[in-house]
Design a binder for these strands. Structure first.
Length: 471
RNA sequence: GCGCCCUUCGUCUAUCGGUUAGGACUCAAGAUUUUCAAUCUUGCAAGAGGGGUUCGACUCCCCUAGGGCGCGCCA
């Protein structure tokens, strides 16, 4: 790139599945660096594998990016649409003698690899068609086009996160650029597209590190400028093993459905492999201001759901009440069957949001804690509440009611009435309050009781309390 | 098998040759409290092993071990 041009970053997923957590982090890092530098963040869908690419996966990726808040610049580039350009580059290389036709069949190559493995030799294409010209036997036979890569010397990947990584050219083989059906492979397509899109920084998963060397060989053959490479350490499951569906290789939308906020995901994923001193809580704006390539760690990280929960709790508490009401409403509407809150329920939810949100680590927990506000009438008790409302507790509850009814039903008066009642009867406040809470909410824990009584109002509260009061 | 990468508390990490190795999450205890939380305080807890280099190594080099990635006409 020229001295004064802005960096161009890209995220290039293949649409063969959901946008999982690893892809999301790769996208995040690219996005942050682009936003930090004022450069561009491009999105390219690598759909050259026609068998496995699906439009559903494209949608899932786009939706996942959108939910994560990672907006891309310009139009989405679809790699398959550029196949003619890729082919032209391969033809050019062929014409220049920097590539050649290989007529080896798939079976032949499989046998070759088996023999190499059996002999304890490195498994790679042996270059059998590198020098021999096709004869009459090959007339009309299918062939692939391979890069005639340099055999001597070494290829060095100057990686911004890993440092210099050296590969002996003798251990890299001649990669396929055009398949026998004439379609370009990923190796060819990435190099051509990154060049044509003006990509200056290739930041991707460490699983591509080996590919970088081979792509460098191609770039060298083409005489094109070399982008900066940065390979991000992979994310492992909580047990340190490869991330599987079972423990976290989930679509980012699965995290949404578990009740995590996008800002939580951005903060969490950022800290997985990147650091800024002792800072843990990092807003997106702060992340953009601070993000750099130098502070990316080298080692693989593990998913830690406890920490994710903790962070999510923080961001829930930090979110404005009205915004959370909207989030909860949208969340409920996505459930099957969808739940639609009444106007009353929404009013109650917003009024109680302050104490509610500090009790929740996810939107799911927030909803569970707020359920007693959603519908009117006596509550069904959960196990703990049922156990608490034993006969004597119900009797106490009944005896408490007159004292409460004598108040104006404000939180203050209700509380002092309850305290007086407890004192006069030699009871602890908890002995009076817990049965009330259980009857009112159906649970043994909730936001402050007297505020909730007041919020629900005299009429509704008494209906719930009387349902469990035994006089 | 061959190549490449990685290795600090259980987890995420700070440290850029000299620190009582710091922070966060988790866990435990305490404060607060009508419950549960939130909040605050305190505590437990680490340089994989072995060689070097150096006055001095978590930090630099080598070896070993462990983990990961790659070795497709997948991306």
């Amino acid at each position: 790139m020229s001295q004064n041009s802005k960096p161009v970053l890209r995220f290039a997923p293949s649409p063969t599945g959901m946008l999982h957590i690893g892809g999301a982090r790769t996208a995040l890092f690219n996005w942050l660096y682009a936003r930090h530098t004022g450069g561009a963040f491009l999105l390219r869908i690598e759909d050259t594998d026609r068998e496995r690419s699906t439009p559903e996966a494209v949608d899932a990726i786009l939706n996942g990016m959108t939910w994560m808040g990672l907006n891309w610049d310009g139009d989405v580039v679809y790699q398959f649409a550029r196949a003619d350009r890729h082919r032209a580059v391969a033809q050019q290389l062929l014409a220049e003698g920097k590539a050649y036709r290989c007529y080896a069949t798939a079976e032949e190559l499989t046998r070759m690899r088996e023999e190499q493995k059996a002999a304890g030799k490195p498994m790679r294409y042996d270059g059998r068609w590198r020098t021999c010209a096709p004869g009459p036997d090959q007339e009309g036979k299918p062939f692939v086009v391979r890069l005639k890569a340099r055999r001597d010397g070494e290829t060095i990947v100057h990686d911004v996160v890993l440092g210099d990584v050296r590969f002996e050219n003798s251990q890299l083989d001649d990669m396929v650029m055009l398949r026998s059906d004439g379609t370009p492979t990923y190796m060819l397509a990435v190099v051509v597209d990154d060049h044509d899109m003006g990509v200056t920084h290739v930041i991707r998963g460490a699983d591509h590190l080996n590919n970088a060397a081979r792509q460098l060989q191609l770039i060298e053959a083409l005489g094109w400028p070399v982008p900066a490479y940065g390979h991000l350490p992979l994310i492992n499951g909580p047990d340190g093993a490869k991330l599987s569906k079972r423990h976290g290789a989930l679509a980012v939308e699965a995290y949404r459905d578990m009740g995590y906020l996008p800002e939580t995901m951005r903060n969490y994923l950022l800290r997985l492999g990147w650091s800024h001193g002792d800072d843990e809580i990092i807003s997106t704006a702060q992340a953009i201001a601070w993000f750099n390539l130098d502070s990316i760690g080298k080692s693989a990280a593990r998913m830690d759901y406890k920490k994710l929960d903790n962070l999510n709790g923080h961001y829930i508490r930090e979110t404005e009440d009205a915004v959370l009401v909207a989030e909860v409403t949208a969340f409920l509407a996505r459930e099957t069957p969808p739940r639609i809150l009444s106007a009353t329920a929404r009013q109650r939810l917003e009024a109680a949001m302050a104490p509610l949100k500090e009790r929740a680590k996810t939107l799911v927990e927030l909803i569970q804690g707020a359920e007693f506000l959603f519908t009117d009438g006596p509550r069904t008790l959960d196990d703990a509440a049922a156990k608490l409302l034993a006969p004597d507790a119900r009797a106490n509850l009944a005896k408490t009611l007159p004292a409460l009814e004598a108040t104006d039903w404000s939180a203050e008066e209700l509380e002092s009435a309850a305290r007086n009642f407890a004192e006069q009867n030699g009871l602890k406040l908890g002995q009076v309050a817990q049965p009330l809470r259980a009857a009112l909410t159906g649970k043994t824990s909730s936001p402050p009781l007297f505020a909730m009584l007041s919020l629900l109002g005299r009429k509704e509260s008494l209906i719930r309390l009387r349902a469990y009061a035994v006089s």
